[in-house]
Design a protein around this nucleic acid. Sequence first.
DNA 1: ACACAAGCGGATAGGGCATTCCACTTGGTT
DNA 2: AACCAAGTGGAATGCCCTATCCGCTTGTGT
Lengths: 219, 219
Amino acid sequence: MEADRKRPRRLRCDAEQNRDRIIEAARGVYEREGLSASMASIARAAGVGIATLFRRFPTRSELIAAVFEDAMERNRAAAVAAGERGSAWDGFREYVATVCGLQADNRGFAEVLTMNFAGARNLEKARQEAFAAFSDLIGRAKAEGRLREDFAPEDLLILLMANAGVLAAATDAAGEASRRLVGQMLRAFAVDAEEPLPEAPAPKRLLRGMVRGRRGGGC
Amino acid sequence: MEADRKRPRRLRCDAEQNRDRIIEAARGVYEREGLSASMASIARAAGVGIATLFRRFPTRSELIAAVFEDAMERNRAAAVAAGERGSAWDGFREYVATVCGLQADNRGFAEVLTMNFAGARNLEKARQEAFAAFSDLIGRAKAEGRLREDFAPEDLLILLMANAGVLAAATDAAGEASRRLVGQMLRAFAVDAEEPLPEAPAPKRLLRGMVRGRRGGGC
DNA sequence: ACACAAGCGGATAGGGCATTCCACTTGGTT
DNA sequence: AACCAAGTGGAATGCCCTATCCGCTTGTGT
């Protein structure tokens, strides 16, 4: 679904296959380990030489952009779909929960959603379109009288950063903790704050799940 | 403020000085760079040999624990002080804002507050006492009818993780974004949700402040 | 003053990582 | 069938990190 022909030359077909294998391998590695995974480990996972990886993706960002284009596209689709709900407020809630769920399911994407990739056209375009659809939703939800007037679009960004933090720190209980955070935030955003709230994770689970301060510095 | 005499032998006095220099240097480095700062860079900053650092603090956690003991103590003191306010709800708000402010001022401490350091007695004791004081506050604020009944102590932990995430991701606008997050969360916690809300950071500031996806993987 | 345990720091081993280089292979075209 | 640009993988380079070793220095008790 993209631009092959505008390149000076097309890739040789075996090179094309390698490219796909790299992206597929990177998708898995990033999903599990986050964006700090090493280039070498990705080349290993893809079964190609390191040079091949660097030839195809000279910078880490280019690889990340290629890998997460479609996740960002799903994000865009979710925002658009939420905008088509009858109730803007329901759409708002649905979208917020969905995008935070995407983060919970994919450590790498959680980070991508909190970062700039200035050079990555498709990625940033999809992000912007999602944001535009969401902005529209904001206006309508306020008009319905369900979303607080002082909600700002930046609050979504802040929530995504916050959620990424919870997911990173609450290893074992990450999903529960994330849902709880989202529930609390939706309450804060709502005019009538009678939003239902997911259960908090059991204290023991949350504590045991906390990143351990034993070895690595928690990078 | 600690245990010198119970050690098999006291440190030689020049060694004691070096220990202090190490802790002081590490305090600065961790504050600026977070807990992933290398042992080598800390030894360099302290002007001691690497061996000296490792002899005194065989594991990274031991160093971290020694460095942040007093910050955790300040956290404990803040919780206790908040508990002595006339209004439990005011104390609750004050403490939440204070502890999140401590995080904002110190990248390392932001991380420490979201991690377990099982072996670090003093550190974990202070944390527990802070938590106990805060728990007491929770009960009284609920009794006052100002804090929602479904607020759970774990929500504080989740907020600390969330705040750490915002601080890490929103580099330039970190302070503003953090205060906004705290404001929103306090609204979610309050029974009458008329908490005032700090301004959201300007969109441009927040976007420009976002961690850039250019070089390193954003660890 | 002396002896020596305690302490010191540089050197070193061992590993991971990003990035470049290069001799070899191969797909596709003629 | 033959050619060669495009593509390949592994080796090499250079950096930074943790952790340990070891010969030298120094504070301290006698």
